[in-house]
Amino acid sequence: MPPGGPTVHKSTSAGGLPPQAIKAIPVRHYGRWISAVLVLGVLSLIGVAFANADVNWNVIPDYLFFDTIVRGAANTLLITVLSMTVGVVLGIVLAVMRLSKNPVTSTVAWLYIYLFRGTPVLVQLFLWYNLALIFPVLNLGFYKDEMTDVMTPFLAALLGLGLNEAAYMAEICRAGIQSVDEGQTEASHALGLTGTQTMRRIVLPQAMRVIVPPTGNEFINMLKTSSLAYAIQYQELLKAATDISSRTLAVMEMLFVASIWYLFLTSIFSIGQYYLERRFARGATRNLPPTPLQKIRANLTRLSHRERVA
């Protein structure tokens, strides 16, 4: 090295001595301790209030797995999954239509979204349910029947919730499709893929990464919004709970039972959403974040390793 040139210190670890770990006094977080005490205080006050409240706690576990309740929860799950399926499929179609160069299809999609997003879902449920008032007979040419027989609470709930959801999903999908870099479409076109192939093979799979998180949110929302179908006599969870409480007068208890079921169902969906998001993050991040299970395993091995070092 020429004199006056920069001096380079060789890493000490290379010389044989391992670098000494820093020993410092960590920052004390007094605020966390104070807030924890406050939160515990408030929680215990709420606990005391509920313990003294006029709640018949014993009936809750009894009714949690009551036949009507379980069937109601199953119906809630069913209508949620079916309505979301209608919503997602129709939503993607509407989004593609909305972005189409064809002015007719894009206007149709715009009008659909305008109508179904602009009116309350409860109103839409009532409209479907009462359709027989204006169309007493359903005549599709190949199929003819009394509307009151066709428009069951289930079908009215499915149409009301599903078609409304499609309008929201269309906007979510549109945002997802538009988030994909234009270079992707160009590269795909340059290879000779048609517009449809490009959408299906290149754009939509990438849009999914943007579409999935809000869709999970919509799913959880739907799980709860489906309780509105109670107003049109669909036998879902809330309907089951209120039917029982109208006989037993255990109003709050049955609402608690329903809430426990809703919480349980939303938790299940949240877990599913986590893994779905992971699946569609492929290629977007260099390394996928570990799953909770992998995290636990890693922490366990690290713990045992640390013990060995100590």
Binding site: A187, L191, T194, P205
Partner: peptide, 24 residues
């Protein structure tokens, strides 16, 4: 569009920013 796509098969293109499909 379909005919344009068919003609592009025979012409390869390489872009400045690669434009590889990231999900594959």
């Amino acid at each position: 569009d379909r005919e344009v796509a068919a003609k592009r098969r025979d012409i390869g293109m390489v872009f400045q920013r690669f434009n590889l499909f990231p999900h594959m």
